[in-house]
Design a protein around this nucleic acid. Structure first.
Lengths: 347, 347
DNA sequence: CGCTGTCGTGGTAACGTTCCCACAACATCG
DNA sequence: CGATGTTGTGGGAACGTTACCACGACAGCG
């Protein structure tokens, strides 16, 4: 059973050279005769040699191991990120250690410790903390990912371009005749919220709309949070067709439920625009029109950044990737039947 | 910058003992004076010592690294599995290397090689191949996960109990008055299909229903596959209310789309039962009633099995975990208004 | 021809840990 | 009191790889 696994010395013996030569041949160094190289490669194949990354790591300080610490691999967005990072890692001969922090400080700290002990070359992290303490202590190359990166301007990071995304969503709303949408936002504590609001305000001002006059509700970034926020919005006085821009797809889907529960229809009575691009949005009825974050691309880019960081060329700085609009059917097109302001119930 | 990280020798010097004693104290061995142990622990804390898992791995052959090879981390079911495995690994001081194979032989082979080179202690694998060749060559402890485990009866494995799941679904259908449901199945090549059909037949025979008389369609395990299968089903002659049991949630959601496209309503005209328990099923309209596989639990259990396998106590054998029914609203209750058809538009 | 430079090769040290053995100090027992 | 066992400690080897140095062979050059 479980025989001792062949080492470079076994290969060298079989090929009739020293282990130095065998090592050079296997690592593709130049100063080896073609003939010797061939003999070594042949011998390696014959004995089934596979390099021991542990030993390489000991000697060279490079393990080919990278860490990824995200809130929850079960969240579709983060799964996309993980997938992108993992694919890119594989292309570069690296392997990814994946951890879920559940937005929990202690878990995060323990994961970071595990990464250090495993001697990873670096890590991609969506940090839980608002402050820099834990990350400062990390002591290895790392790249931040996600909106929280905004809090650490001096660190290399990859995020989605929230400003561009909000602008994209607003332009789409306007093009469909929704000039004064209501907003469903996340908790005040989240950093992305501020950027979202800032761009929203800019956009309103450019179009001579008073943002303060528009209805706005907060909620948790969940279906239930969106549902209760929408319920509150529907209780307010309103006239005619109603458009809502939700800061998160799950909230948008929750809002859709609330609309249905109120005996209204989407998109005939209420238009809903989401933000994230979760797969579930494709299966709701109507399909959720949304601004999709490039999750996979973010994973890919963050891994590229990390490799640069490890290699010492950290010119990257902060990367913000553009989002794109996915049109499905949760927005009524008021521009067709009404050149004027949005009035009437859309039929 | 990036100072040399403190080793056990640094700790030993600081504590004024030999590295042997330091090592014993840190690993919790018994033959150390309390006083010496305390001095060592103090010194370790002072210099910020963190054990080098690489060196431990070199010396002891145990790395504390485990592999997980699944088709796609982006698939919600597999994400749940990964999460369960990852959490359990963390509880046991191990870290998880996660790989997606995309049902691709070459990718799988390359991932398994990466795992061997990283000297993982073992792996949890959902194998792509029908044959044992690649796994045979793996040469490390492993546990199979998912329905494909059925093909390798001699290997330790964790799967869902498909027979129990089908029975659960059928009982529920019958309780709602659907005595002769149509079936949407996956591709003939997939092993789970056979088990599904076998149990379905048994159930029919027990209830004096001729399974051969029931409509049945195949498709890919995707939304599109379910949609086209449903279209074909709807083209057939049928009378009254129509119930469908889909072998996969994505197909069920696709079927729902097809029903809507045909101008029919779910559940008023067509009842749909899914199988998997993907989150998206909660957001569709109507919500998808489904038989949910215990993804996270499967991840947890497979990791337990793997640890047993590594420790040499492989009494586990094959584990099949029960599924549970999630009732949402895609099934009409015909048992109430017995003789008539399902009516009412749900308002 | 002798000096210098290049090339291929082999030997050895080092990475950080744990395991094994040897040793000293002391207690126990005949 | 000497033989034996127990306990804590320290020294060294080993895990498998790569980096460094040294050596011999040979070509190029004055």
């Amino acid at each position: 059973m479980q025989r001792r696994r062949p080492t470079i010395i076994d290969v060298a013996e079989k090929a009739g050279v020293s282990k130095s030569t065998a090592g050079r041949a296997l690592s593709g160094a130049s100063n080896v005769t073609d003939e010797a190289r061939e003999r070594v490669l042949e011998a390696a194949k014959a004995v089934g040699y596979e390099r021991n990354d542990l030993a390489v790591g000991m000697r060279s300080g490079r393990t080919g191991l990278l860490g990824l610490v995200i809130p929850d691999i079960t969240n579709p967005f983060w799964a996309e990120v993980a997938r992108g990072a993992q694919d890119r890692a594989a292309e570069n001969g690296a392997s990814l250690l994946v951890f879920s922090s559940d937005w929990n400080h202690d878990r995060e700290a323990s994961h970071l410790r595990a990464l250090r002990q495993a001697r990873v070359d670096g890590a991609i992290i969506n940090p839980v903390a608002d402050n820099f303490d834990d990350l400062d202590r990390f002591g290895l190359p790392f790249v931040l990912i996600g909106s929280s990166a905004e809090r650490f301007p001096s660190t290399s990071s990859v995020g989605s371009d929230i400003a561009q995304a909000v602008r994209l969503g607003m332009d789409h709303l306007v093009s469909k005749g929704h000039h004064a949408p209501a907003l469903i936002l996340g908790p005040k504590s989240r950093i992305a919220r501020a950027r979202f609001l800032r761009t929203f305000h800019e956009h309103c001002v450019e179009r001579d709309v008073d943002p303060a006059a528009l209805p706005m509700e907060d909620g948790e970034y969940t279906v239930e949070g969106g549902r209760t926020a929408m319920k509150r919005l529907l209780k307010r006085d309103r006239v005619g067709h109603f458009a809502v821009f939700a800061a998160n797809d799950l909230m948008a889907l929750g809002a859709m439920v609330a609309v249905r529960e109120a005996g209204l229809r989407c998109p005939e009575d209420v238009s809903i625009l989401g933000f994230d691009g979760v797969p579930a949005g494709a299966f709701s009825w109507p399909g959720l029109t949304t601004v999709a974050k490039p999750g996979r691309e973010m994973g890919v880019r963050s891994l590229d950044c990390l490799l640069d960081e490890i290699a010492g060329r950290s010119e990257h700085g902060r990367v913000f990737l553009p989002c794109r609009l996915i049109e499905r059917g949760s927005l009524a097109d008021l521009s067709l039947n009404q050149p004027k302001r949005a009035v009437g119930d859309g039929r």
